[in-house]
Amino acid sequence: MRAPTPGFKHLLRLSDDTGVFEHARHAVVLRHHGYCTDDVARGLVVASREPSPVHRLSRLADCYLAFLTHAQDPSGAFHNRLSFDRRWSDRPGVGDWWGRAMWGLGTAAARNSTPWVRQDALHAFVLGAEQRSPHPRAMAFAGLGAAEVLRVTPDHSAAASLLMDAAEVVGAPAEDPSWPWPQPYLTYANAALAEVVIAAGDLSGDRPLLTSGLNMLTWLCDIQTTEGRLSVVPVAGWRRDAPRSRYDQQPIEVAALADACATAAQVTGDDAWHERVRRAVAWFHGANDAGAAMWSPATGGGYDGLTEQGPNLNQGAESTLALISTMQHERRLP
């Protein structure tokens, strides 16, 4: 029997008419922490992936798009942190939040079911595409948004330029087969780096680049699989030739793997990638190092981390959106 799925009820609980609150204590929103562009962008990604959203979910997409366009300055950079009293607490920049905003806007421009949302998201995406970030993950996230645009508009020059620049910033993997990765360490959302290289190789017709990305992702999946279950790199990261901690594992790692493996499956037609998506889904249902479910059926919220003592029962935005994103891929599995 298929396991229950979380749906969007906790995301609706975390959201108001401004955006999505970043943190929760168990399932109760902690409003004093306010909002961040990172999570709102993730929310726009998952809302726009739904082909036939209910009215409440369409309203969330409207809200999230309005937040991102408010966060964007005339140069295309973005603020990240908005307090509960609706004041920005930072200056616009091109850190990870810029990359995720570009991912959200690109996904909305390509997939959202509402025509005017697609149009306005593309306008903001084009403005943001004038920027570049020195940070590989920021560029990877932005490149994933560019890939979404290119899949529906193959001749979009700004998206094509951004995607190829993202792959270049990620860099080529090391030639050492024991560590075929562009950096000597793994930190967070690692699979996004491999995914953007895969997308760049596929959409540009660059076969060696595509093969490089697939090899990166294969290695990343292999080193994070133990006895057929996922055991992802924890929040502390892992440096080459150093001991690897087992906890605190984060849902964002699992969601990034699910995203990348779903892209690899689409690009290659190889069913082996579907099995890797299933491992990501299973991690949330308890096929993990603690044997514990990583979400609450009562609330629909995703738990914030897998610790040595079991789940961190707080259900913030990042973990809940990682859960929803992964389960969206489950629904598309053959």
Score class of each variant (00 low, 15 high):
D62W: 10
G300N: 05
Q315H: 03
D90L: 03
L333I: 06
I198D: 07
V170H: 00
G145C: 05
Q315F: 01
G7I: 07
R207D: 14
A160F: 05
D90W: 11
T326W: 01
V232R: 00
M102W: 07
L14V: 09
G201I: 03
Y64K: 00
A77L: 09
T218V: 03
V54Q: 15
L323I: 00
N80M: 07
D96S: 14
W88M: 11
L57N: 10
I198V: 14
D259T: 10
P6I: 10
A47D: 10
E227M: 11
S296N: 13
R31Y: 09
A140Q: 02
E175M: 12
A172C: 12
Q224C: 07
L217N: 09
I252T: 05
G128M: 04
R87C: 12
L12E: 14
V235C: 08
V40F: 05
R246I: 08
C36N: 13
L217V: 08
S231N: 14
L186T: 05
L209Y: 09
A108R: 01
A166E: 03
G301L: 03
R239Q: 14
C36L: 02
S133C: 00
P115G: 03
S212R: 09
L122R: 12
A172V: 14
Y247H: 04
C261G: 02
E330T: 07
E253F: 13
T18R: 14
E253S: 04
A147F: 05
G171Q: 02
S75D: 13
S325E: 06
P51T: 06
L150E: 07
T187E: 15
G93Q: 09
R279P: 01
P154K: 03
A146N: 10
T114F: 06
A166I: 06
R207Q: 15
W181Y: 11
E175C: 13
L257D: 01
A264V: 00
S296V: 02
V45E: 04
M1C: 13
T37K: 04
D304P: 01
D241S: 09
W273G: 03
V197C: 04
D270G: 00
C63R: 15
T37L: 09
I223R: 02
S157D: 13
R56W: 08
A110K: 08
P74M: 06
P115K: 04
